[in-house]
Design a protein around this nucleic acid. Structure first.
Lengths: 206, 206
DNA sequence: CCTACCGATCGGTAGG
DNA sequence: CCTACCGATCGGTAGG
Protein backbone atom coordinates (compact mmCIF):
# COMPACT_ATOMS: atom_id res chain seq x y z
CA UNK A 1 0.00 0.00 0.00
CA UNK A 2 1.19 3.51 -0.75
CA UNK A 3 1.23 6.03 2.11
CA UNK A 4 -1.90 8.16 2.42
CA UNK A 5 0.08 11.20 1.27
CA UNK A 6 3.13 11.20 -0.95
CA UNK A 7 6.38 12.88 -0.02
CA UNK A 8 5.66 15.60 -2.56
CA UNK A 9 2.21 16.26 -1.11
CA UNK A 10 3.65 16.42 2.38
CA UNK A 11 6.18 18.94 1.16
CA UNK A 12 3.48 21.06 -0.45
CA UNK A 13 1.48 21.07 2.76
CA UNK A 14 4.55 22.12 4.70
CA UNK A 15 5.14 24.94 2.25
CA UNK A 16 1.56 26.11 2.65
CA UNK A 17 1.95 26.15 6.43
CA UNK A 18 5.20 28.10 6.22
CA UNK A 19 3.87 30.67 3.76
CA UNK A 20 0.81 31.34 5.89
CA UNK A 21 2.83 31.20 9.07
CA UNK A 22 5.29 33.82 7.87
CA UNK A 23 2.42 36.15 7.02
CA UNK A 24 0.76 35.53 10.39
CA UNK A 25 4.02 36.01 12.30
CA UNK A 26 4.57 39.35 10.59
CA UNK A 27 1.33 40.50 12.20
CA UNK A 28 1.42 38.85 15.62
CA UNK A 29 5.12 38.10 15.98
CA UNK A 30 6.85 34.74 16.12
CA UNK A 31 5.82 34.37 19.74
CA UNK A 32 2.36 35.91 19.36
CA UNK A 33 1.61 33.44 16.59
CA UNK A 34 -0.45 30.48 17.84
CA UNK A 35 -0.59 27.05 16.32
CA UNK A 36 -4.34 26.85 16.84
CA UNK A 37 -5.01 30.05 14.90
CA UNK A 38 -2.62 29.08 12.13
CA UNK A 39 -4.29 25.67 11.85
CA UNK A 40 -7.73 27.28 11.67
CA UNK A 41 -6.54 29.66 8.93
CA UNK A 42 -5.34 26.68 6.94
CA UNK A 43 -8.38 24.52 7.60
CA UNK A 44 -6.19 22.00 9.40
CA UNK A 45 -6.00 20.55 12.86
CA UNK A 46 -3.41 21.77 15.35
CA UNK A 47 -1.78 18.36 15.37
CA UNK A 48 -1.62 18.38 11.58
CA UNK A 49 0.32 21.65 11.63
CA UNK A 50 2.54 20.75 14.54
CA UNK A 51 3.41 17.37 13.06
CA UNK A 52 5.51 19.04 10.38
CA UNK A 53 7.77 20.74 12.90
CA UNK A 54 7.48 19.05 16.29
CA UNK A 55 7.30 22.14 18.46
CA UNK A 56 6.42 25.80 18.27
CA UNK A 57 10.10 26.72 18.53
CA UNK A 58 10.95 24.52 15.53
CA UNK A 59 8.09 26.16 13.64
CA UNK A 60 9.45 29.61 14.53
CA UNK A 61 12.89 28.65 13.23
CA UNK A 62 11.37 27.28 10.03
CA UNK A 63 9.45 30.51 9.47
CA UNK A 64 12.60 32.57 10.02
CA UNK A 65 14.47 30.38 7.57
CA UNK A 66 11.85 30.75 4.87
CA UNK A 67 11.59 34.50 5.42
CA UNK A 68 15.36 34.87 5.22
CA UNK A 69 15.43 32.93 1.96
CA UNK A 70 12.77 35.25 0.52
CA UNK A 71 14.69 38.31 1.73
CA UNK A 72 17.88 37.04 0.11
CA UNK A 73 16.07 36.42 -3.15
CA UNK A 74 14.30 39.79 -3.21
CA UNK A 75 16.92 42.13 -1.77
CA UNK A 76 20.40 40.61 -2.13
CA UNK A 77 20.27 38.48 -5.28
CA UNK A 78 19.41 41.26 -7.77
CA UNK A 79 22.24 43.42 -6.38
CA UNK A 80 24.78 40.71 -7.09
CA UNK A 81 24.55 41.64 -10.75
CA UNK A 82 26.27 44.93 -9.90
CA UNK A 83 30.02 45.17 -9.38
CA UNK A 84 31.20 45.02 -5.75
CA UNK A 85 31.56 48.26 -3.83
CA UNK A 86 29.44 51.37 -4.24
CA UNK A 87 27.37 50.15 -7.23
CA UNK A 88 26.36 46.99 -5.40
CA UNK A 89 25.80 48.88 -2.15
CA UNK A 90 23.52 51.34 -3.91
CA UNK A 91 21.68 48.49 -5.61
CA UNK A 92 21.04 46.59 -2.41
CA UNK A 93 19.80 49.75 -0.70
CA UNK A 94 17.38 50.34 -3.56
CA UNK A 95 16.05 46.78 -3.47
CA UNK A 96 15.83 47.04 0.33
CA UNK A 97 13.71 50.16 0.11
CA UNK A 98 11.52 48.57 -2.56
CA UNK A 99 11.16 45.53 -0.36
CA UNK A 100 10.05 47.65 2.64
CA UNK A 101 7.62 49.52 0.41
CA UNK A 102 6.03 46.37 -0.98
CA UNK A 103 6.60 43.89 1.80
CA UNK A 104 2.90 43.67 2.61
CA UNK A 105 2.59 41.01 -0.05
CA UNK A 106 4.90 38.68 1.84
CA UNK A 107 4.76 40.29 5.31
CA UNK A 108 1.31 41.84 5.75
CA UNK A 109 2.22 42.98 9.25
CA UNK A 110 5.59 44.46 8.31
CA UNK A 111 9.17 43.21 8.19
CA UNK A 112 9.32 39.98 10.19
CA UNK A 113 13.00 40.45 11.05
CA UNK A 114 12.33 43.79 12.69
CA UNK A 115 9.40 42.35 14.61
CA UNK A 116 11.39 39.29 15.66
CA UNK A 117 14.38 41.36 16.76
CA UNK A 118 12.18 43.41 19.06
CA UNK A 119 10.29 40.36 20.29
CA UNK A 120 13.36 38.32 21.22
CA UNK A 121 16.01 40.90 22.07
CA UNK A 122 15.31 40.56 25.77
CA UNK A 123 15.37 36.76 25.78
CA UNK A 124 17.70 33.89 25.17
CA UNK A 125 17.36 30.72 23.16
CA UNK A 126 17.71 29.39 19.62
CA UNK A 127 15.19 31.76 18.04
CA UNK A 128 16.89 34.83 19.45
CA UNK A 129 20.22 33.47 18.26
CA UNK A 130 18.87 32.89 14.76
CA UNK A 131 17.40 36.40 14.60
CA UNK A 132 20.65 37.99 15.76
CA UNK A 133 22.63 35.87 13.30
CA UNK A 134 20.54 37.10 10.36
CA UNK A 135 20.90 40.74 11.36
CA UNK A 136 24.64 40.31 11.79
CA UNK A 137 24.98 38.58 8.44
CA UNK A 138 23.25 41.39 6.56
CA UNK A 139 25.16 44.01 8.49
CA UNK A 140 28.46 42.34 7.62
CA UNK A 141 27.55 42.37 3.95
CA UNK A 142 26.73 46.06 4.04
CA UNK A 143 30.04 46.73 5.79
CA UNK A 144 31.93 44.67 3.22
CA UNK A 145 30.47 46.57 0.27
CA UNK A 146 31.14 49.91 1.97
CA UNK A 147 34.73 48.86 2.65
CA UNK A 148 35.21 47.96 -1.00
CA UNK A 149 33.70 51.29 -1.99
CA UNK A 150 36.27 53.09 0.14
CA UNK A 151 39.09 50.99 -1.29
CA UNK A 152 38.08 51.82 -4.86
CA UNK A 153 37.73 55.49 -4.02
CA UNK A 154 33.97 55.55 -4.62
CA UNK A 155 33.46 56.63 -1.01
CA UNK A 156 35.72 59.29 0.54
CA UNK A 157 38.95 58.11 2.12
CA UNK A 158 38.55 57.77 5.87
CA UNK A 159 34.92 56.72 5.63
CA UNK A 160 34.13 54.20 8.36
CA UNK A 161 32.32 51.24 6.74
CA UNK A 162 30.76 50.19 10.05
CA UNK A 163 29.41 53.69 10.48
CA UNK A 164 27.86 53.63 7.01
CA UNK A 165 26.20 50.28 7.66
CA UNK A 166 24.89 51.46 11.04
CA UNK A 167 23.30 54.53 9.52
CA UNK A 168 21.84 52.56 6.62
CA UNK A 169 20.16 50.17 9.01
CA UNK A 170 18.74 53.13 10.90
CA UNK A 171 17.21 54.46 7.70
CA UNK A 172 15.62 51.12 6.91
CA UNK A 173 14.18 50.85 10.41
CA UNK A 174 12.80 54.38 10.23
CA UNK A 175 11.26 53.61 6.85
CA UNK A 176 9.66 50.43 8.15
CA UNK A 177 8.13 52.29 11.09
CA UNK A 178 6.96 55.16 8.89
CA UNK A 179 5.15 52.73 6.60
CA UNK A 180 3.70 50.44 9.26
CA UNK A 181 2.76 52.97 11.93
CA UNK A 182 2.00 56.08 9.88
CA UNK A 183 1.36 54.71 6.37
CA UNK A 184 3.31 57.70 5.06
CA UNK A 185 3.55 57.53 1.24
CA UNK A 186 6.52 59.94 1.23
CA UNK A 187 8.65 57.74 3.47
CA UNK A 188 10.44 55.87 0.70
CA UNK A 189 11.37 59.10 -1.06
CA UNK A 190 12.64 60.51 2.22
CA UNK A 191 14.75 57.40 2.72
CA UNK A 192 16.21 57.65 -0.79
CA UNK A 193 17.14 61.27 -0.17
CA UNK A 194 18.96 60.38 3.05
CA UNK A 195 20.58 57.45 1.33
CA UNK A 196 21.98 59.44 -1.57
CA UNK A 197 23.37 62.02 0.79
CA UNK A 198 24.91 59.31 2.96
CA UNK A 199 26.55 57.50 0.03
CA UNK A 200 27.57 60.56 -1.95
CA UNK A 201 28.75 63.47 0.10
CA UNK A 202 29.18 62.25 3.64
CA UNK A 203 32.41 62.13 5.53
CA UNK A 204 32.41 59.38 8.08
CA UNK A 205 35.66 60.07 9.75
CA UNK A 206 35.69 60.68 13.45
CA UNK B 1 -15.14 52.18 60.29
CA UNK B 2 -12.37 53.29 57.99
CA UNK B 3 -11.93 51.40 54.72
CA UNK B 4 -9.50 48.52 54.81
CA UNK B 5 -7.07 50.52 52.69
CA UNK B 6 -6.83 54.29 52.50
CA UNK B 7 -6.91 56.20 49.25
CA UNK B 8 -3.20 56.88 49.62
CA UNK B 9 -2.42 53.20 50.11
CA UNK B 10 -4.50 52.29 47.10
CA UNK B 11 -2.58 54.83 45.06
CA UNK B 12 0.74 53.41 46.22
CA UNK B 13 -0.33 49.92 45.24
CA UNK B 14 -1.38 51.16 41.82
CA UNK B 15 1.99 52.85 41.40
CA UNK B 16 3.76 49.62 42.31
CA UNK B 17 1.74 47.71 39.73
CA UNK B 18 2.46 50.30 37.05
CA UNK B 19 6.19 50.44 37.76
CA UNK B 20 6.53 46.67 37.63
CA UNK B 21 4.17 46.46 34.68
CA UNK B 22 6.20 48.92 32.61
CA UNK B 23 9.34 46.89 33.27
CA UNK B 24 7.59 43.63 32.38
CA UNK B 25 6.05 45.11 29.22
CA UNK B 26 9.46 46.26 28.05
CA UNK B 27 10.50 42.61 28.06
CA UNK B 28 7.37 40.81 26.84
CA UNK B 29 5.51 43.64 25.13
CA UNK B 30 2.22 45.24 26.12
CA UNK B 31 0.35 42.31 24.60
CA UNK B 32 2.79 39.63 25.74
CA UNK B 33 2.45 40.85 29.31
CA UNK B 34 0.04 38.72 31.32
CA UNK B 35 -1.92 39.79 34.35
CA UNK B 36 -1.25 36.50 36.10
CA UNK B 37 2.53 36.80 35.77
CA UNK B 38 2.47 40.46 36.82
CA UNK B 39 0.37 39.56 39.86
CA UNK B 40 2.75 36.76 40.81
CA UNK B 41 5.74 39.13 40.50
CA UNK B 42 4.02 41.52 42.88
CA UNK B 43 2.81 38.85 45.31
CA UNK B 44 -0.78 39.76 44.54
CA UNK B 45 -3.80 38.01 43.11
CA UNK B 46 -4.84 38.54 39.52
CA UNK B 47 -8.09 40.14 40.67
CA UNK B 48 -6.14 42.48 42.93
CA UNK B 49 -4.10 43.74 40.00
CA UNK B 50 -6.98 43.89 37.54
CA UNK B 51 -9.19 45.75 39.99
CA UNK B 52 -7.07 48.88 39.61
CA UNK B 53 -7.65 49.07 35.86
CA UNK B 54 -10.69 47.00 34.91
CA UNK B 55 -9.25 45.33 31.83
CA UNK B 56 -5.96 44.41 30.25
CA UNK B 57 -6.42 47.14 27.65
CA UNK B 58 -6.89 49.76 30.36
CA UNK B 59 -3.75 48.44 32.06
CA UNK B 60 -1.84 48.72 28.78
CA UNK B 61 -2.94 52.33 28.37
CA UNK B 62 -1.95 53.11 31.97
CA UNK B 63 1.51 51.60 31.41
CA UNK B 64 1.98 53.63 28.22
CA UNK B 65 0.93 56.76 30.08
CA UNK B 66 3.39 56.21 32.88
CA UNK B 67 6.20 55.37 30.48
CA UNK B 68 5.51 58.48 28.42
CA UNK B 69 5.62 60.61 31.56
CA UNK B 70 8.99 59.11 32.47
CA UNK B 71 10.28 59.67 28.93
CA UNK B 72 9.17 63.31 29.02
CA UNK B 73 10.88 63.81 32.36
CA UNK B 74 14.14 62.14 31.33
CA UNK B 75 14.50 63.20 27.71
CA UNK B 76 12.46 66.34 27.04
CA UNK B 77 12.42 68.27 30.30
CA UNK B 78 16.20 68.80 30.66
CA UNK B 79 16.40 70.05 27.07
CA UNK B 80 13.84 72.77 27.77
CA UNK B 81 16.56 74.65 29.64
CA UNK B 82 18.27 75.23 26.28
CA UNK B 83 17.11 77.95 23.87
CA UNK B 84 14.79 76.78 21.09
CA UNK B 85 16.31 75.66 17.81
CA UNK B 86 19.61 73.91 17.35
CA UNK B 87 20.79 74.08 20.99
CA UNK B 88 17.59 72.50 22.23
CA UNK B 89 17.59 69.98 19.39
CA UNK B 90 21.14 68.96 20.21
CA UNK B 91 20.26 68.73 23.91
CA UNK B 92 17.26 66.50 23.37
CA UNK B 93 19.28 64.23 21.09
CA UNK B 94 21.92 63.90 23.78
CA UNK B 95 19.38 63.09 26.49
CA UNK B 96 17.68 60.67 24.09
CA UNK B 97 20.95 58.81 23.50
CA UNK B 98 21.67 58.76 27.22
CA UNK B 99 18.18 57.41 27.82
CA UNK B 100 18.67 54.60 25.31
CA UNK B 101 22.03 53.78 26.85
CA UNK B 102 20.67 53.60 30.38
CA UNK B 103 17.08 52.64 29.82
CA UNK B 104 17.54 49.21 31.34
CA UNK B 105 16.87 50.75 34.74
CA UNK B 106 13.35 51.71 33.73
CA UNK B 107 12.90 49.42 30.69
CA UNK B 108 14.91 46.24 31.31
CA UNK B 109 13.76 44.81 27.97
CA UNK B 110 14.45 47.96 25.94
CA UNK B 111 12.48 51.03 24.90
CA UNK B 112 8.80 50.26 25.48
CA UNK B 113 7.66 52.66 22.75
CA UNK B 114 9.70 50.88 20.11
CA UNK B 115 8.40 47.51 21.28
CA UNK B 116 4.81 48.77 21.40
CA UNK B 117 5.04 50.36 17.94
CA UNK B 118 6.15 47.05 16.44
CA UNK B 119 3.61 45.08 18.43
CA UNK B 120 0.59 47.18 17.47
CA UNK B 121 1.47 48.59 14.07
CA UNK B 122 -0.52 45.90 12.30
CA UNK B 123 -3.62 46.27 14.51
CA UNK B 124 -6.30 48.77 15.36
CA UNK B 125 -7.70 49.93 18.65
CA UNK B 126 -7.04 52.40 21.45
CA UNK B 127 -3.57 51.08 22.35
CA UNK B 128 -2.33 51.36 18.79
CA UNK B 129 -3.77 54.86 18.61
CA UNK B 130 -2.03 55.88 21.84
CA UNK B 131 1.30 54.48 20.63
CA UNK B 132 1.03 56.29 17.29
CA UNK B 133 0.03 59.51 19.04
CA UNK B 134 3.14 59.45 21.23
CA UNK B 135 5.46 58.81 18.29
CA UNK B 136 3.78 61.61 16.33
CA UNK B 137 4.06 64.01 19.27
CA UNK B 138 7.79 63.47 19.67
CA UNK B 139 8.34 63.64 15.94
CA UNK B 140 6.49 66.97 15.75
CA UNK B 141 8.67 68.38 18.49
CA UNK B 142 11.85 67.34 16.69
CA UNK B 143 10.53 68.92 13.50
CA UNK B 144 9.64 72.14 15.33
CA UNK B 145 13.13 72.52 16.81
CA UNK B 146 14.74 71.76 13.45
CA UNK B 147 12.50 74.34 11.80
CA UNK B 148 13.54 76.96 14.34
CA UNK B 149 17.18 76.02 13.78
CA UNK B 150 16.76 76.69 10.07
CA UNK B 151 15.00 79.98 10.73
CA UNK B 152 17.80 81.19 13.01
CA UNK B 153 20.43 80.10 10.50
CA UNK B 154 21.87 77.40 12.78
CA UNK B 155 21.01 74.80 10.14
CA UNK B 156 21.68 75.46 6.45
CA UNK B 157 19.00 77.26 4.47
CA UNK B 158 16.89 74.77 2.56
CA UNK B 159 17.23 72.08 5.22
CA UNK B 160 14.01 70.06 5.41
CA UNK B 161 13.00 69.81 9.10
CA UNK B 162 10.89 66.71 8.45
CA UNK B 163 13.88 65.06 6.84
CA UNK B 164 16.08 65.85 9.84
CA UNK B 165 13.52 64.42 12.26
CA UNK B 166 13.10 61.29 10.15
CA UNK B 167 16.82 60.64 10.10
CA UNK B 168 17.17 61.33 13.82
CA UNK B 169 14.47 58.79 14.61
CA UNK B 170 16.29 56.27 12.43
CA UNK B 171 19.46 56.81 14.43
CA UNK B 172 17.64 56.28 17.70
CA UNK B 173 16.03 53.09 16.43
CA UNK B 174 19.37 51.78 15.19
CA UNK B 175 20.94 52.58 18.55
CA UNK B 176 18.18 50.80 20.44
CA UNK B 177 18.59 47.69 18.30
CA UNK B 178 22.36 47.81 18.59
CA UNK B 179 22.13 47.89 22.38
CA UNK B 180 19.34 45.36 22.82
CA UNK B 181 20.25 42.81 20.17
CA UNK B 182 24.03 43.14 20.00
CA UNK B 183 24.94 44.79 23.32
CA UNK B 184 27.46 46.87 21.37
CA UNK B 185 29.23 49.31 23.73
CA UNK B 186 30.31 51.49 20.79
CA UNK B 187 26.78 52.09 19.60
CA UNK B 188 26.19 55.33 21.49
CA UNK B 189 29.43 56.82 20.19
CA UNK B 190 28.49 55.80 16.67
CA UNK B 191 25.13 57.48 17.08
CA UNK B 192 26.72 60.69 18.35
CA UNK B 193 29.04 60.75 15.37
CA UNK B 194 26.14 60.40 12.95
CA UNK B 195 24.20 62.98 14.91
CA UNK B 196 26.89 65.62 14.82
CA UNK B 197 27.34 65.14 11.10
CA UNK B 198 23.60 65.35 10.56
CA UNK B 199 23.19 68.54 12.59
CA UNK B 200 26.38 70.25 11.51
CA UNK B 201 27.35 69.75 7.92
CA UNK B 202 24.43 68.07 6.20
CA UNK B 203 22.40 69.57 3.42
CA UNK B 204 18.87 68.33 3.47
CA UNK B 205 17.63 69.92 0.33
CA UNK B 206 16.14 67.69 -2.33
C1' DC C 1 -7.40 43.12 47.76
C1' DC C 2 -8.76 38.21 48.54
C1' DT C 3 -10.76 33.28 47.14
C1' DA C 4 -13.12 30.82 43.96
C1' DC C 5 -14.55 30.28 39.77
C1' DC C 6 -15.89 30.87 34.44
C1' DG C 7 -15.24 29.50 29.36
C1' DA C 8 -11.63 29.75 26.08
C1' DT C 9 -7.31 28.81 24.45
C1' DC C 10 -2.47 27.64 24.94
C1' DG C 11 1.46 24.06 23.39
C1' DG C 12 1.77 19.48 23.10
C1' DT C 13 0.79 14.09 23.11
C1' DA C 14 -1.45 9.43 22.16
C1' DG C 15 -3.03 6.66 18.93
C1' DG C 16 -4.61 5.70 14.69
C1' DC D 1 -3.25 14.48 8.85
C1' DC D 2 -7.20 13.35 11.94
C1' DT D 3 -9.87 12.98 16.73
C1' DA D 4 -9.52 13.15 21.36
C1' DC D 5 -7.38 14.48 25.04
C1' DC D 6 -3.75 16.48 28.71
C1' DG D 7 -2.43 20.14 32.33
C1' DA D 8 -1.57 24.95 32.39
C1' DT D 9 -2.76 29.45 31.71
C1' DC D 10 -5.36 33.16 29.58
C1' DG D 11 -8.57 37.55 30.65
C1' DG D 12 -12.20 38.38 33.37
C1' DT D 13 -16.24 38.03 37.00
C1' DA D 14 -18.87 37.18 41.46
C1' DG D 15 -18.97 38.02 45.93
C1' DG D 16 -17.13 39.32 49.97
Amino acid sequence: MSPRRSVAETRLTRDRIVERGVAAASVDGLEGLTIGQLAADLGMSKAGVLGHFGSKEALQLALLDAAAAAFARIVWRPAELEPPGLPRLRAVCETWIDYLEHERQIFPGGCLFTTAAIEFDARGGPVRDAVARLHKLWRRRLVAEARTAVATGDLPRGTDPEQVAFELVGLFMALNQEIQLFADPNAAQRTRRALHRLLATAEHQQ
